[in-house]
Nucleic acid binder design. Structure first.
Lengths: 335, 335
DNA sequence: GAAGATTTTGCACGCGGGGGCAAGAATGAA
DNA sequence: TTCATTCTTGCCCCCGCGTGCAAAATCTTC
């Protein structure tokens, strides 16, 4: 029990249990070949000393850290909170810990990735938006990031794994709902158009609407998924526009934008939602259900997606582009 | 360049640079004694091989991981997103990475702490709420968590470090504002009352108000910092209450509660904010500034607090109870 | 009860790098 | 030029645990 250094190692347990250090370690691995008797002896001694295997040393020896880096750059979007909660919970259940990496400082993305690689993460999961092909290549290049996973977004990059809900199916459902509710003059509000990992929502909506209503709808773009951006956009764009020329529904790429849009419609233009202009969102964040927004939205099957992530980490899924997850439309008063 | 295993180690760089492995490692430490010439040689070779020191091995050898566990259990409060952003950014600047640990599954807190300890985090930072003395003791017991820090909350526990804004000063400012605005019949809405790490806001407000207005105000409590909880509370509590008996201001322990309260006032009782009932919050979350809420709130000096956290990790600050951080009142239309 | 089959255990070595010491090189003083 | 300092560099051993193999222990079978 050489507790001098503060830490108790397998050696200490071995001494107490009267076996060798290796037997102690074996007792802590489920697949090891060890007799029930000695495992019991070891476990008893371990408990007495409150010994736990050191993951640092384990990782070093096995080249497997059970650590996943979660890269987030978009802290203005409340949906990120939901994703983080779900991902951390399910990853933990799968035996993985989560390294939270803030990449909102643009030039830091590459450095952050480098840093994660120095910790030998088993995978880097991107749930942000502003990463470009160069970051991806950097990450996968000489560095030690084993897997690069884009979550809730599609990346065409061959070296990247994507887990994404079926935007086409989702937008089809949404379009259908909007159209049959009688809206005929939509405006699509999209977030930043990134090259390497994008959403299909805008394109899909535009083309679906054209097929359904025979007319290509207008769209507008903001540079961040920030309610304030959508607020300003709607404020500016509708200023001095006669009511008859306004769209009758705003189809927003996600709830963050939709909430900003609703506020602008109400507080800048003095119009009603949905009577004057209806609004739809995407993600179904908690605030969407508040009586203020009552936002019609689309809920992604995050749990399924997170479980797929774990399966990918475990090597149980080899496919690189998973985009068949189907969620469900949550219809509320806003549209 | 034995790239067989995929990783390049200091040995490879040493071979290329024509020095010993130890010289290579020295080149990567700022305080090491090494000649400018050989450092340059090493760096050049390192860049050529795109070598970076392995943090796993470094941590194992130095007993210092530069890793901080962030324990969060309260993902319904949007302020957590703000805190996470700020903390991760500033910790990174200070050379620390962040392990995000989800403790919203109550019984998992202890396990999560254990897990973090297995990774030998330099500190565990609690920004959640539902941890009790037992968790704290468990964490500090035989485990390897070196420092336990309660952030944005006060803990009296001797083994714990607290970094908290001066709730007394904050509430004094807020009380002063509310009183001089002419409100006379406040109701304080508080979150869960935990024993080991609590806020001073309720007690302070109650006592300050009594001194100022001569009357002890009422208060109510919800069991989570969730807008929905406050919504339900306000809905129920004010049901069938004659208007003259209603409070004229709701002083909420934070914005999450305040936002739920505002929605209930408006949508359940058909009353106006602030004309019928005013509302104040705390934290100044991004949504508080939306035209819908225009919430009068108090902004904690999160950056200063995060910097203090880094100083504590670096050992530059030894004090264990830091609670003199003063923020500022953000006055908006809600009160 | 002995020989073979099988399970369990111990051990050398490796994972990638750090602390501290001693030898070697460079610098300064006399 | 010589000797003493100071700076650099190389190296042993250690951090805590896993892998693969060989020795030891246990179990089968006839």
């Amino acid at each position: 029990m050489k507790d001098q250094h503060g830490t108790i190692t397998a050696d200490d347990v071995a001494a107490l249990a009267g076996v060798s250090r290796w037997t102690v370690n074996r007792a802590f691995r489920k697949d090891a070949s060890i007799s029930a008797k000695s495992r019991e002896k070891v476990m008893k001694a371990a408990e007495e000393l409150s010994y736990v295997p050191d993951l640092l040393a384990t990782s070093l020896a096995t080249d497997r850290t059970n650590l996943v880096a979660l890269l987030v750059d978009d802290f203005a979007n409340p949906h990120k909170l939901v994703m983080m909660e779900r991902l951390t919970r399910i990853l933990r259940k799968g035996g993985y810990d989560t390294l939270l990496v803030n990449t909102s400082n643009e030039e830091d993305t590459s450095a952050a990735l480098l840093n994660a690689s120095q910790r030998r993460v088993d995978a880097a999961v991107l749930i942000g938006i502003s990463f470009n092909d160069q970051s991806l290549e950097t990450a996968l290049g000489a560095k030690r990031v084993k897997k690069l996973i884009v979550f809730a977004r599609m990346s065409e990059n061959d070296n990247t794994i994507s887990i994404c809900c079926d935007d086409r199916a989702a937008m089809a459902t949404l379009t259908q709902h909007v159209f049959s509710a009688g809206y005929r003059n939509p405006l699509f509000i999209a977030g930043p158009q990134t090259q390497s990992a994008h959403l299909q929502r805008k394109e899909t909506f535009l083309s679906l609407w054209r097929h359904t209503a025979g007319r290509r709808p207008e769209f507008a773009t903001v540079e961040r998924y920030d309610p304030k951006m959508a607020y300003d956009l709607v404020t500016e764009r509708f200023r001095d526009v006669p009511k008859s020329k306004l769209p009758d529904v705003l189809v927003c790429e996600n709830d963050a934008l939709a909430m900003g849009a609703i506020d602008a419609i109400r507080y800048e233009h003095g119009l009603r939602v949905p009577e004057d202009i209806a609004v739809t969102g995407f993600d179904d964040v908690p605030q969407a259900s508040s009586p203020h927004y009552k936002l019609t939205s689309y809920r992604q099957p995050l749990t399924d997606m997170a479980n797929a992530l774990v399966d990918i980490l475990e090597g149980k899924i080899r496919s690189k582009k998973l985009n068949a997850f189907v969620g469900n439309l949550v219809i509320r008063a806003s549209a």
